[in-house]
Design a protein around this nucleic acid. Structure first.
Lengths: 190, 190
DNA sequence: TGCCGAAATTGATCTGTATCAAGTTTTTTC
DNA sequence: GAAAAAACTTGATACAGATCAATTTCGGCA
């Protein structure tokens, strides 16, 4: 499937645009290719773009006392970037780096805001999209607070086994809030 | 200030409604009084309402192995309820209980959705409101992951000293992800 | 105002996970 | 395709914060 078609299907899951509106809306999205280890945004910058991931994996992380803490990952079909920085138009607390080569589509903040002004469908899509992100964050928040390192590992391994292949272990470890050593031991124990 | 006026000012901070629209919008909100220790929602129920807190303090918590884990607190001027359950219209993973007597305004899910359909201003308010909640959650997520128990206590004490008075310590302790004993020791050390 | 149950404090001990260190394996690069 | 760098594993030790237990203090209410 073509990259614009992929975005279309994804957006239409939440809101069906009129064809005229959609043509206009999609015209503001631009394809971007980035290579493994390149960044779409670095800590301290303000996020100018909102990204759709057509192919690839990205990792978000912040730094604390020189160490990296992985915040999350995005895959094919996800949206990416420092979304809170984008929304607030404030400097980001984290960086977003490609773990594999990526094909992305992006729209600028100004263009997206213009779309929100212009079309009620876009406004609605924005609201529901935010709601869905929020629901996911709430779920993850509860997850982190309710489970021990071992339990979190176990849940990741059973619920998202593909991640174990895609993402280097040291990133997964810090995502789960443990050291690579602990991660390695839990994996062995399994 | 009057309870409806308080909500009006709060909503208008994000979006200025037309007067006609506002009159219609506000007519769907109903005042609710609840007493200390009463619940607005219990774990397992689906949240039917979205609340505005005019006066009072509420606590959200989930249960794990019989122990309560406090998720968050809402105060005068906040919105409350199990918002993720409300948005998804799925059973809530946590309960929301009054810590003091509370005066609230609430609107039902059906009525709010009808307002979103009817007015672009409402839709926009919904989008921006969700964005703000999301930004707050992202900040807190980073907070929990980047700091030790002692650092989290210190930050709470300096950034929100009023909470230390308003909320019983055992709730704050579990909110910060530590036992009441640890909380007590950190407080003493200060 | 005084009583009772809940909340907070304090001390002693335990434990899961971090840290440090030394290999081994995998990936990158030239 | 060999050398260098990075990632992962494994073992030994350290420690922050949990748990358990015994008082003390506080808050609600008769």
């Amino acid at each position: 499937m073509d990259i614009y078609q992929a975005l279309r299907e994804n957006v239409f899951k939440l809101v069906a645009f009129e064809e005229e509106e959609w043509k206009d809306f999609i015209s503001y999205w631009r394809p971007v290719h980035i290579k493994k280890r390149e960044y779409i945004i670095k800590e301290g910058q303000t996020e100018k773009y909102f990204y759709f991931v057509y192919r690839g994996v990205l990792r978000g992380y912040t730094t604390k006392d020189g160490d990296e803490i992985s915040i999350g990952f995005t895959y094919d079909g996800d949206y990416s970037g420092a979304y809170d920085s984008f929304l607030a138009q404030q400097p980001s607390d984290f960086s977003m780096q490609a773990i594999t080569d990526c094909e992305l589509l992006r729209i600028s903040y100004t263009d997206l805001m213009a779309m929100f002004d212009k079309y009620k469908s876009a406004e609605r899509w924005g609201r529901i999209f935010n709601a869905n992100i929020l629901i996911g964050m709430a779920r993850r928040q509860l997850e982190v607070r309710s489970f021990s390192a071992e339990e979190r590992f176990e849940r990741l391994a059973t619920q998202s086994p593909h991640i174990l292949q895609l993402v280097p272990q040291k990133y997964l470890a810090s995502y789960l809030g443990m050291t690579p050593e602990t991660f390695s031991r839990l994996r062995k124990k399994r």
